[in-house]
């Protein structure tokens, strides 16, 4: 059972100001939703591990070292003496 105090705490974490009346309404709504969501506890899914989408081995770009942008962005610029006065 989610209380309106918990909703207040969540709203602080989520950075959303809410009134007492709103926290009561959201507590009711979330309790309705969790009454449904808690059906996931009917069954044990411990054997499964989420591995990604669509059976793909990797979605990501190849992890290779490239020239840092910082160095290349100074190409062609003049060297300026910025020694302290």
């Amino acid at each position: 059972m989610i209380t309106k105090e918990e909703i207040k705490k969540m709203s602080t974490i989520a950075r959303i100001s809410i009134t007492d009346k709103e926290s009561e309404k959201f507590a009711d709504d979330l309790n309705d939703m969790f009454a449904f969501i808690n059906m996931i506890n009917e069954k044990n899914f411990d054997g499964a591990e989420f591995t990604g989408f669509c059976g793909s081995e990797s979605f990501f770009r190849q992890d290779k070292v490239i020239e840092p942008l910082r160095d290349s962005s100074f190409n062609g610029t003049k060297s300026i003496d910025i020694s302290l006065l």
Partner: peptide, 18 residues
């Protein structure tokens, strides 16, 4: 965020936070 987000958006963000 309070002024600019609608009720359903707030509800879902709160559920996500929880």
């Amino acid at each position: 965020r309070e002024e600019a987000l609608g009720e359903d958006v707030k509800r879902r963000i709160l559920l996500g936070t929880y």
